[in-house]
Design a protein around this nucleic acid. Sequence first.
RNA 1: GCCGAGUUAGCUCAGCUGGUAGAGCAAUCGCCUUGUAAGCGAUAGGUCGUCGGUUCAAGUCCGACACUCGGCACCA
Length: 648
Amino acid sequence: MIAITFPDGAKREFPVGTTSAGIAATISPRLAKEAVAAKVDGILVDLSHSLDSDASVSIITRDSPEALELIRHDAAHVMAEAVQELFPGTQVTIGPAIENGFYYDFARAEPFTPEDFARIEAKMREIIAADKPLVREVWSRTNAIEHFRFKGEAYKAEIIEDLPEDAEISIYRQGDWLDLCRGPHLPSTGKVGTAFKVMKVAGAYWRGDSRNAMLQRLYGTAWRTKAELDAYLLQMEEAEKRDHRRLGKDMDLFHFQEEAPGSVFWHPKGWSMFQGLIAYMRGRQDKAGYVEINTPEVMDKVMWETSGHWFTFREHMYTTVVEDRTYCIKPMNCPGGIQVYNKGIVSYRDLPLRIAEFGKVLRYEPSGSLHGIMRVRAFTQDDAHIFCTEAQMEDECRKVIDLIMDIYKDFGFDNVRIKFSDRPEKRIGTDETWDKLEASLKGALDHMGLAYELNPGEGAFYGPKLEFVLRDAIGRDWQCGTLQVDLNLPERFGSSYIDESGQKQRPVMLHRALFGSLERFAGILIEHYAGHLPLWLAPVQAVVATITSDADDYAEEVARALSCAGLRVELDRRNEKIGYKVREHSVKKAPIILALGKREAEGRQVALRRLGSQAQETLALDDAIRNLVEEATSPLARVAGDTYRNII
RNA sequence: GCCGAGUUAGCUCAGCUGGUAGAGCAAUCGCCUUGUAAGCGAUAGGUCGUCGGUUCAAGUCCGACACUCGGCACCA
């Protein structure tokens, strides 16, 4: 007998070999019927799974959160069967459950088209209606390989061949169709339900490697109920509405055109926001003891050979030849920054030296990777290079991390993940140097008690890096800030400082960007706020709109007063109804509309309306100005600054 | 870069199986003086992404290229 512990703490004995289905049956007939899987010592297993030792067991029904993953995984299998039935000759590869749904990668010469989706869905419904039992079988390796080879399933055979020697090869059978799969699965196809949809088709490389064949990936979504599916589809539509490319048009922030793929044409309003971000960051950096410089966009190729970019980053670099001399357009700011440091003699007393640059960099990015202002070929970094002694390195890292986290909070990003990327294959410098750099960067995180995930081999070519990934209002992750520590570039460019005993020493160089790319960060903010930018950042903070032409003079006075108080204002005296004006400015995401009619003009008042609300507030003009000025204050104002240069 | 889909007026889109383009909004002009997310009328606006081919005839069929979108790969 074995002892089974249930989630409520109850303990009961069962014969060895009892299946999880059997256990469910002893609890209640209802549970026996509703059970779809079980969790044994925290691991999800099939209902047919038999237990031969003591364990804690909970029964999973279709309503359990764990069931969702099974439903999706099974939906992938059902889709694979449907596709193979409809399109004979199609090879199956892999098909996992993913966030919000599932996919399956197929190998087929003919492309799938969106017109096929309905047929595939219909066939899937047939398979689900047939409620075929899903039966797990364990096959021998040679049997399995032979079986799939014989069926012409080369990819499946390859997967099995690559499984570890001791791996158990399990096959799941649903009627006549079967697939190699680790499982677990629902007891029958009927349990998948009908709340699913084939969403899109896309290319995907076999095993995620661009050197391999391109497969066709069919994406689907699946949920427990129709209501959940509908909610998901609605959420997708909502996400589309906050797409920064859509809002960029609506709000008249920027545009793109064919002649400059991957480069932004910033319009006045977008540029206002962009400059607002720079002003904020400049202020924060100033208060954190940074100085700011600017360096050339175009420098001789020799500079990039010295830095190592020419050998490790060349495929991303633009070059130009004039007077038989080859120049590179900068893809990074570091070599330029080092030149400023190197000009003159630096004493240990001057360190740490924090040198910032809002540098515009150009990188060739593959055409398929471009995406609005989030992924472009020309972008501005809020870059800085901190030169310090080895002893100061860890403390400087901690200061950067503190600053990053504090700045993200100003934009409402509380969920920030840190990724630690260590030495890549393509790199410069000795292993000893890399050991030292990786250790101190990790040390900074450990001493701050910050959690991080490892990202092996993803560091910059000159040093290990931290990446700061933030999650936006609708749960998407974006990599923004980075912090890299580097001893290699100072060495290559011969940087030095004079220590206490008058000896030349090599400084450490920290590369850091907090927003990362201003373009990307602006895009993230647009989507994060769904266009409802905080007042301090909004390109137009208030629109003064007249209701009748009787209020024209007063409206002009109000607009002028707001403008004099430092607010960005638009005056709308057009001959249109107030409802029309409200709609138009709301679509453009103006945060505040001040509607002025005869009543307001006579009482020297304003009727204030906020974006996203239908409420109106009538208040005295002077109060309105005072409130708005207060409300439009940059979060920069709350940060204490203590910066002066101490000449010793 | 790779796979697939798309590109028609400033914007959003229609145009079936080929017979030289259409709507709504925006724009301009006029009427309306307007009270919180689209008042009414008139006018104007397009070598249908580019280049080439098939055809008596191409927005429509075929090919190449460019760009965009969805993924993959790459990445701030």
